[in-house]
């Protein structure tokens, strides 16, 4: 039976590879020429693009998929072959191989995991098909892909930190942090960016713990913090994503506090439920983690196929919202 338990653990470990939220990946700098293409005068004719999506694990991902499908539409001069791998890395690599054998003009990948890409990327290179990475990155050599487009998690943390510093930094402020999944790129970079922005202010981090990017995690950790310090002992919550902030709101209300008033909340993502909480005054400030990467990715593909040089690393435009901006933005929000 020990063996049974062990193999159960192994199975779960494999499943744990499926990442949640705004996916991770470290970015590598530098500029290089775009990958060559045998497309020739590609701008004139339809560009056939294979897109290997991770799956459909979150609202963020759904918005990302929609944005990509719209940007690579027929009207815009693309012929999109779409594949969602349900967070199975092997299936995703198989999808990319099938794109290569179909002879597409370019491949866009939102890698599920960062490792194990060397072989298939080399195959694409020898078939002279340029590869563009979207959202997450890979550990393979940067020579093997043309460019990467995604969100700048560190800048997101910085924007959130700047808001905190300017609104609360002059008075003594006790802050608790709800971290994302330990070791993930968004959690690391958002913590780093925020810390650099509040350095030298009177904001003090009294506790920091992972809530695994989930509502339940955010609520449990916040309940613990509230038991430890009381509603009066905490002035500010920095949540690495909206879901944890939404969990923290539940915990603060259960403890008899008023989220957004007694305890200020700043978070990152700007998903619909988070924006609603911002409008309701329960969250004070949200920095966007933009899933609408489609247009930027399509632009990149066009340039790369035409043989034009592109920036190797491209960051999405992330905006930030306070209550009034959220009221204005929510009706037209795509996610």
């Amino acid at each position: 039976m020990k063996v049974k338990l062990l193999s159960g653990v192994a199975t779960v470990a494999v499943l744990a590879l499926a990442l949640t939220g705004c996916g991770g990946g470290s970015s590598s700098g530098g500029t290089s020429a775009g990958g060559a293409s045998d497309g020739g005068s590609a701008a004139a004719k339809t560009i056939k693009v294979g897109f290997a999506q991770t799956g459909s694990e979150s609202g963020w991902r759904a918005a990302n998929t929609k944005s990509m499908k719209e940007a690579f539409s027929k009207e815009k001069g693309f012929d999109l072959v779409f594949n969602a791998a349900d967070n199975d890395p092997a299936a995703q690599i198989a999808a990319v191989r099938s794109f290569i054998s179909q002879g597409v003009d370019a491949i866009v990948i939102a890698p599920i995991v960062s490792d194990g890409w060397d072989d298939v990327l080399k195959e694409a290179q020898s078939a002279k098909i340029p590869v563009i990475l979207e959202d997450r990155t890979v550990s393979a050599s940067p020579d093997l892909y043309a460019a990467w487009v995604g969100d700048d998690f560190k800048a997101e943390g910085e924007t959130a930190g700047k808001w905190a510093a300017s609104t609360l930094g002059t008075a003594d402020t006790n802050m608790v942090v709800l971290e994302g999944t330990t070791g993930s790129a968004p959690a690391n970079d958002r913590a780093e960016g925020f810390a650099s922005a509040i350095a030298g202010t009177k904001i003090k981090t009294i506790a920091s713990q992972t809530g695994d990017f989930t509502r339940d995690g955010g609520k449990k950790v916040m309940e613990g913090f509230l038991q430890k310090y009381g509603v009066k002992g905490i002035n500010l919550v920095y949540a690495h994503n909206d879901d944890m902030a939404l969990g923290a709101i539940e915990a603060i209300e259960a403890a008899g506090g008023k989220p957004g008033t007694d305890i200020k909340i700043v978070s990152i993502d700007a998903v619909r439920d988070g924006m609603q909480a911002l409008i309701d005054g329960k969250i004070n400030y949200i920095v966007e983690c933009n899933p609408l990467l489609g247009d930027q990715a399509a632009e990149l593909v066009k340039k790369v196929v035409a043989g034009e040089p592109v920036e190797k690393v491209q960051f999405a435009k992330d905006s930030a919202f306070d209550k009034d901006a959220a009221v204005a933005a929510l009706p037209t929000r795509a996610y």
Binding site: A18, D212, R215, D216, K219, D243, L246, D273
Partner: peptide
Amino acid sequence: NIMAADANAAGE
């Protein structure tokens, strides 16, 4: 508890 159905995280 969270007033939401989180299919990915529930009971993980």
